[in-house]
Each structure stands twice: as structure tokens, then as C-alpha cells.
């Protein structure tokens, strides 16, 4: 469904992505792991054209894009099918929770308001915020804000949702509620590409794990492949650093 070939991206002479390939099928839940600065977030942002990649190709259903010659029309078409959940939520501060969810539907997709409100309410119900339709972001906790962020993505009924470290700006006690919501929507068959440091989520929910380091994909496979029997030295080193010694995986 989504295929990325040989994507490159530099910031001021610093090459962050050095030719990454990626293929995602419908229903996949893919988690990207890797140390900070490995290019995971940049990869995600390039897929949604929040950054302009320097070279490479993308195939998205029937749309083909050469990153060197991107057409505005294609950007818009792909963004209509891809939703994004931001690390720092990026809720529209001047809109209520419900308006945050319906904005893209009414303005971006031209869906009639009544219908959009219905979809929006359903999405907020799904993330457990039925009581907070009319709350402004400033009235919500970080965890609630991120759940609105997820509802905003889900409501668009996209082909894929990209999650950029959705829990790393949260206080530890609020991480659980957001991960639970993500698990729920994964269980519904939503296609997801998730950058995260939550190893538990990767282990339990992902059907494929990608380990990135230094702007390239080092290793990929099932959670079992990566966590229990990693092949590459860099993967082993990383896992040793982030997972405590006595932590055992039951897969």
C-alpha cells in the first residue's frame, strides 16, 4: 500500500536519511525503534511532506511521487489519506476538542457539518473523551490532549496513521491511557506506522519492528526476531541499553 524507496534527506550538510526503504501493507502495525538522531522522526515527517525529502520515490496506492519533483496536487492527495499524530499534540489552541477533530473533515474534505460532528463525536467517544467535546486544549491534561490528537487522526478515516513519539512528551502516569487507545485502534485493523520508545507497545502490538540507526534501516523483522534474536551488533547494543537486564520477553 505504501512503499518508500531510497529516501534521502539532509539538514545543512548533515545527512539524516541515507537511503531508507520501507514497505507497509494494509493492516500492518509497524514500529520504528532507534536511538535519538537516527532519522526516525524525519522519515515520518518526509512521508507526510512536513519535510521535503531530497531524493527518493514513494508509491502510495495509485499515486507515484518522485521526491525531487513533488507536485502540489500529489501532496494534497497523499495528506488526505495519511494522518499524523504529533509528539507535542499540536492541537489547534483556538478550537474545542470537537472542532479540532471536525476541522479537517469540514474544511479539508468538505464533509457537511452535521455529518462531520457525528464522526467527530464518535472518534472522541472511541478515545474515551465523551465528556470533553467542548473543552479547549488548555483545559485538558497532556494525556487527554494526545487522545484528542489521535481522535483527530482517526476521524479522517485515513489509509494509515503516522505516530511521531506520541507518548514522549507525557508525564509517566499519563502514558498508559494513550498507549491503551493506540492498542484499541490497532485491534480494529488500522494501519499504523509508529515511532516510539515504548518497547512494551512494540512487543505487544506491532507485527513488524524496524530498527534504524545513523539514517539507515539496520534490521527489521517480527517483534520476536528483533527482541529475542537480533542479528546485528548495533541492534543488540541498543536493546541492551534501553531494556533492563532482568527484563524477559514472553513471546
Amino acid at each position: 500500500m505504501l512503499e518508500i524507496k531510497n529516501i534521502h534527506k539532509s539538514f545543512g550538510g548533515n545527512e539524516i536519511l541515507k537511503g531508507v526503504d520501507l514497505a507497509i501493507d494494509k493492516g500492518d502495525v509497524v514500529v520504528i525503534l532507534g536511538p535519538s538522531g537516527s532519522g526516525k522522526t524525519t522519515l515520518l515527517r518526509c512521508i507526510n511532506f512536513l519535510e521535503n525529502a531530497d531524493q527518493g520515490h514513494a508509491t502510495f496506492g495509485d499515486i507515484q511521487v518522485d521526491f525531487q519533483h513533488v507536485k502540489k496536487k500529489d501532496v494534497h492527495a497523499i495528506r488526505q489519506r495519511v494522518a499524523f499524530v504529533f509528539q507535542n499534540y499540536n492541537l489547534f489552541t483556538n478550537k474545542t476538542a470537537l472542532e479540532n477533530v471536525t476541522e479537517g473533515l469540514i474544511i479539508g474534505r468538505k464533509i457537511p457539518k452535521a455529518q462531520a460532528v457525528e464522526i467527530g463525536k464518535k472518534a472522541l467517544d472511541k478515545v474515551g473523551l465523551s465528556e470533553k467535546y467542548d473543552a479547549y486544549p488548555s483545559q485538558l491534561s497532556g494525556g487527554q490532549q494526545q487522545r484528542v490528537g489521535i481522535a483527530r487522526a482517526v476521524a479522517l478515516n485515513p489509509d494509515i496513521i503516522l505516530f511521531d513519539e506520541p507518548t514522549s512528551a507525557l508525564d509517566p502516569e499519563l502514558v498508559g491511557e494513550v498507549l491503551q487507545v493506540m492498542k484499541n485502534i490497532a485491534a480494529e485493523g488500522t494501519t499504523m506506522l509508529v515511532v516510539t520508545h515504548e518497547m512494551g507497545f512494540a512487543k505487544d502490538v506491532a507485527n513488524r519492528v524496524i530498527f534504524m540507526d545513523g539514517g539507515v534501516v539496520v534490521e527489521e523483522g517480527s517483534p520476536h526476531d528483533i527482541f529475542v534474536s537480533p542479528k546485528e551488533e548495533r541492534t543488540k547494543k541498543f536493546l541492551k541499553r534501553v531494556i533492563p537486564e532482568d527484563y524477559t520477553f514472553y513471546i
Binding site: 507526510n48 511532506f49 512536513l50 494534497h76 495528506r79 488526505q80 495519511v82 494522518a83 499524523f84 504529533f86 507535542n88 499540536n90 492541537l91 489547534f92 489552541t93 483556538n94 478550537k95 476541522e103 479537517g104 474544511i107 479539508g108 474534505r109 483527530r152 487522526a153 479522517l156
Partner: peptide, 27 residues
Amino acid sequence: IEKGQLEAAHSVGLTTFQAYTRIIIPQ
């Protein structure tokens, strides 16, 4: 106004013009 507001608007399918008139300018 944080850059993230514009990015979020783009990510839900708003054009840059729509993002300015609906999100950025009101703020």
C-alpha cells in the same frame, strides 16, 4: 504561534491558505 499549528493543519488536509485563515490568523 508554534510551527506545529501549521503542520497539524496540513496533516489534517487543510491547504496553507485554509490553515492561515482558520487556525493561524485567529490565534
